[in-house]
Design a binder for these strands. Structure first.
Lengths: 230, 230
DNA sequence: GCAAAAGTGTTTTGCGTACACCCATGC
DNA sequence: GCATGGGTGTACGCAAAACACTTTTGC
């Protein structure tokens, strides 16, 4: 196919860890359902055309605010560009994808055609949006391991079992709260606030309250191997 | 500034470890010198406009082949997109950057305005191309630690001291050959060919010859922390 | 008291670094 | 022989995982 001109769109993979009826919360992604052909009924990532006077990060923030009324993005970063000439029909469109993270308790109002879907059970996705979600999830999993990126999924203050549930949902395996605490505390990623939470109805020792030390991305475990000599 | 239309270019940060008179080889980047205003005389990354019928990876390969006659790219991956509306004058241009790696012994012919520059001493760079090189270098350093990306910088077959020099140049610190061997062998990244090399003029035990097991990127040390339970 | 949940102490393990020591070659 | 570079063996350290045990609450 030969195209006359090239458009550029930004698409955001926005994750939040949410309760969805199930006992344990699940990692979920924000999608909207197409009302028009092509691919009517399929689910799309939020986003849209880049304006001539904005850079891509501003564009993503603007579009999420305007189109799905979402403003609580705690972290936003570039992922990959999808540039196959035929990735969407008609106009040749290059897509730049972003990873956005929303803290857990926030539950913004959403337009009626927009919904959170658990990453483990995605609906039929429009165009190449499925692989984009997979890619974003892989990036999140990797960064949970060597950065403080958890700050963008967790509440401002939290108890360790809550944080364990968030990590478990994002990583898709049971994380041990004991070790999670020690790893994150040793690295200076989380700190105690000093206060303790109420015990639940069924008893149990009251839990210490923590918070993330930073609210910006920081690499906390730079060298996996081949460390420079000390 | 308001722009009428938006152009899209691809730019490649191509690295090779090269001897440049100095005893130890150095990590170098391929640049060409601008003959026209704006920024005449400043050095640019190779690349150019994306065609309407090609994706970005093909475009990078094509442009490197056409413009600087470079075909021995062993590894090519996306880096970041630079989308500031005013990053270059006149037409608003979005730049997608790529990391390209050329194996060490290959010394392709270059056009006269094109040259390899050591990363440690970059010439005055055009536009925002300086930060692009820095970004690419950071990515390379990170991936040397947790992937087999060295395959794209090393010769097909090599002796361990050669590989040490390559890693040292790319990482910018002295790597210990003994430990490098053990780490890479344990991970299955390199294997012995069985043959041994000649000793140099000044004697010394003949070295074993190695090769990389794969010639495609592979993650070899996935989890820095928060490993799933075993 | 007992169950439930949180937190601490201790052991084990795996991996990477550091370093001492042995090996094979040229001259 | 001896210098030179290559390779192996081993001790050390660190960080994380695993798990037993203690603490603090509700009922």
């Amino acid at each position: 196919m030969v195209h006359i001109s090239t458009a550029h769109e930004v698409l955001a993979v926005v994750f939040q860890v949410r309760r969805l009826g199930t006992p344990k919360p699940q990692l979920s992604v924000l999608l909207w359902q197409r009302a028009q052909e092509p691919q009517r009924g399929a689910w799309s990532l939020p986003g849209g055309s880049l304006r001539h006077d904005e850079d891509m990060t501003s564009s993503v923030r603007r579009q999420l605010a305007e189109k799905v009324d979402l403003r609580e993005i705690a972290h936003l970063e570039q992922l990959a560009v999808f540039s196959d000439p035929d990735r969407v029909p008609a106009t040749r469109t290059i897509a730049s994808t972003f990873l956005g993270l929303v803290p857990s308790p926030a539950t913004p109002e959403l337009p009626p055609d927009t919904r959170w879907h658990p990453v483990s059970a995605l609906p039929p996705m429009a165009f190449d949006h499925g692989p984009m979600v997979t890619h974003a999830h892989a990036r999140l999993v990797a960064k949970l391991s060597y950065t403080n990126i958890g700050f963008a999924l967790a509440p401002k203050e939290f108890v360790l079992s809550t944080l364990r549930d968030i990590y478990s949902a994002a990583l898709d395996y049971q994380v041990d709260a004991t070790n999670l605490q020690r790893v994150l505390q040793r690295r200076g990623v989380i700190t105690r606030t000093g206060t303790t939470a109420q015990s639940g109805r069924s008893g149990g020792r009251p839990a210490a309250v923590f918070r993330f030390a930073d609210s910006q991305l920081r690499v906390t475990d730079e060298f996996a191997a081949l460390r420079p000599p000390s």
